[in-house]
């Protein structure tokens, strides 16, 4: 992890994992600790962990097409009012228009990740305007304990 400080006194933490399912718990533990430090409430903390985990899982499954040594780079910004997580990959470019939650009245396995991310986060923004890969930005505004 690489700590840093921005001009507005926000803190920046950077983490990189290989895009493999066994490393997801590292991202979850880090995000959980960061949420605790930021002073948010426990429910929000669970929600941010879930959204980051689901977004990383989607990168592994869809952008990289399966587990790989390629990285998922997480930049986490904590400020007094919000936690912002940017997840950067270097895999296949995603078609942002195709990222949609599925209908919940269809009772079938799979396809719930995007619904979870969109429901629990305040802002979700996908960006594929890179020479290589994509980025998803997740924002949660902090409600103090």
């Amino acid at each position: 992890m690489t700590p840093g400080r921005t001009k507005d006194k926000s803190e920046i933490i950077e983490i990189q994992i290989p895009a493999k399912p066994q490393f997801l718990k590292i991202i979850r533990a880090a995000v959980g600790s960061i949420c605790e430090i930021s002073g948010g409430n426990l429910d929000d903390s669970h929600n941010v962990i879930l959204a980051v985990d689901e977004a990383c899982s989607n990168i592994i499954k869809h952008t990289y097409g399966g587990p790989t040594e390629e990285p998922i780079h997480a930049t986490i910004l904590i400020s007094p009012e919000k936690i912002e997580i940017r997840l950067r990959d270097f895999g296949e470019k995603i078609d942002i228009k195709k990222i949609k939650p599925r209908k919940l009245d269809e009772i079938r396995p799979g396809g719930l990740g995007v619904h979870f991310i969109n429901t629990v986060m305040d802002e979700v923004e996908y960006d594929n305007h890179f020479e290589q890969g994509n980025q998803v930005k997740l924002v949660k505004y902090i409600e103090k304990k």
Binding site: R28, I49, E54, S57, P109, G110, L112, G113
Partner: peptide, 16 residues
């Protein structure tokens, strides 16, 4: 203590 959508999907398949 933690379950994601892949865990939920596994249990949906079991239910079916």
């Amino acid at each position: 203590s933690y379950m994601d959508s892949s865990g939920v999907a596994t249990l949906v398949e079991a239910l079916q």
